[in-house]
Design a protein around this nucleic acid. Structure first.
Lengths: 194, 194
DNA sequence: AGTTTAACCGACCGGTAGGTCGGTTGCAAA
DNA sequence: TTTGCAACCGACCTACCGGTCGGTTAAACT
């Protein structure tokens, strides 16, 4: 019957979903408890407090999922095309509700970076890791790209634009504006090629 | 002694600052009352509730300031150069603390679009107004730009990137990453010229 | 001077949040 | 079979939130 590891995983997954939808602060423990069908004691047995639960969600759910999401498109032979397809497939395959939720990393960055140092350093590390991932793969195919490109700069630019477009779709409640920005982003990326 | 209009303005300005720094939800009325040195009764005499106060801050503080900020650079003879200078001067002249607070419009968009319909429609209207402002001014100088540009698409792209770069600097706590993205954004904008 | 009312005061309310803690339960080792 | 402890329960605590409301004050008008 009892399976502490299963309980812990369940808490993490439900919390990840709630935080993604409502943000960290607006996510209430009681709501998590209901969905998990456990008591407050159970949650506090596995996590010291809400903040530690948040950190665990970030490290054990968001971070791995984030890398698993971005790595494949970037590590294809043609990372420019890989990213273009990656972004394009988002607006096609993702539902409106999903899209409006935005990227968990960007959401937490906006909400928690200025409030909690623990979140800030984790978010920053993740952003730097993503930047390195993109930049190194761009430099890998630098022979096919324009000369004098600052790959780190280009990588930060691409991710910034993507996050900005997610923000846009939150107020419009549809994919239209997201699509527009992604189209222009793809046009920009194609221009990086020589 | 008594100056109701002054009281109201003071509430609006202090609230605008608090909301800009902490976000709408995290801003507590008691904190506003302290800074304004007024009672709760005074605040509720001027505003029906917290939400209405938020709407008033948006319409009477953020919206005018937002237009006053973006209009000049976009309405110069060369809007591309105007925007480039506009963005560049930000990273030079703005303090780190200011920059990390981000754009009030983008902040509210991220926080409130999915929670409150009243905020959502106001934010969306503002975004569309800004988009129109940029797009029309780009089309004004279309003869100097590349052919087949979708000006609305380009305008949304520019603003998205700018907002995304603000997000970045929240976790890094310095201007470095913001600078990088802005540099690439300026490079992109220059490429729009033929 | 008296009257009216907008402007303002602050104690109080219900609700909810995160967090605590003494007690119970189930399972595994001895 | 007994014992020990991780796993779990849920009533309770304090703090703070947005919001209410009966009362007070200042100033403008008659």
């Amino acid at each position: 019957m009892r399976d502490p590891e299963q309980t812990r995983q369940n808490i993490l997954e439900v919390s990840a979903d709630e935080i993604h939808r409502k943000g960290f602060t607006a996510t209430s423990l009681s709501c998590i408890l209901k969905r998990c069908e456990i008591s407050k004691g159970a949650l506090y047995h596995h996590f010291a407090n809400k903040m530690e639960l948040g950190y665990a969600v970030f490290e054990e759910v968001y971070a791995p999922a984030f890398i698993a999401l971005w790595q494949p498109p970037v590590e294809t032979e043609d990372p420019i095309q890989g990213l273009s397809d990656f972004f394009s497939s988002m607006s096609k395959e993702m539902s409106c509700d999903e899209l409006v939720c935005g990227c968990p990393l960007n959401n937490l960055c906006q909400e928690m970076s200025g409030v909690d140092e623990g979140f800030r350093i984790r978010i920053l590390a993740m952003q730097q890791q993503l930047n390195l991932l993109i930049a190194t793969n761009l430099s890998r195919v630098s022979s096919q790209l324009q000369p004098d490109l600052d790959f780190s700069q280009v990588a930060y630019f691409i991710v910034s634009t993507f996050h900005g477009s997610s923000s846009l779709s939150k107020s419009s409640l549809n994919k239209e504006l997201f699509d527009k920005v992604i189209k222009e982003l793809c046009r920009y990326m194609q221009q990086l090629k020589r």
